[in-house]
Amino acid sequence: MIRDSQDVIVKTLSRLLVPFMVIYALYVIMHGHHSPGGGFQGGVILAAGFVLLVVSHGLEQTRKRLSEKAAGVLSSIGVFIYAGIGALCLILGGNYLDYGKLSKLLPVVPAEARSLGILGVEIGVALAVMAVMFTIFLVIFTVGEFQEDDRSEK
């Protein structure tokens, strides 16, 4: 178990930094078509925010916001959004991920529909990347602890 850090500096700084970091990650995700970034990069920054929260405030505080089960569900939902938009385009008579065909569903012109489709796909990618990175970090950081506990018991 990752314990609560007793360090005043790291704890207070991360308390002030984490919300801004998450909103920056969401900005990177949502503005992927105007500036550098996109789903993957934004997802990595989002996961980094949660990692900072785990390191500074301990596992219990983080579980209240994003539990492991929620991370697993979110990774599946991300992949589902990505594949669902692609398959929707397939159903509407285009190629896989052919966003222009989404204009039959949405009340916009095909160019606008393309932009919206890319935004949806990026949100899906970001959710999947965030959840998987967070889960990998938690597994790596807690498995060592379990081994140490086993050793101390022997």
Partner: peptide, 24 residues
């Protein structure tokens, strides 16, 4: 400069987190 500021903010954040996690 507007594009590179975004990249550098992300770089600074990841650098900070890397150092904190290494220290932990």
């Amino acid at each position: 400069i507007d594009m590179f500021i975004d990249i550098s903010i992300a770089y600074a954040l990841l650098n900070f987190i890397g150092t904190v996690v290494l220290a932990k």
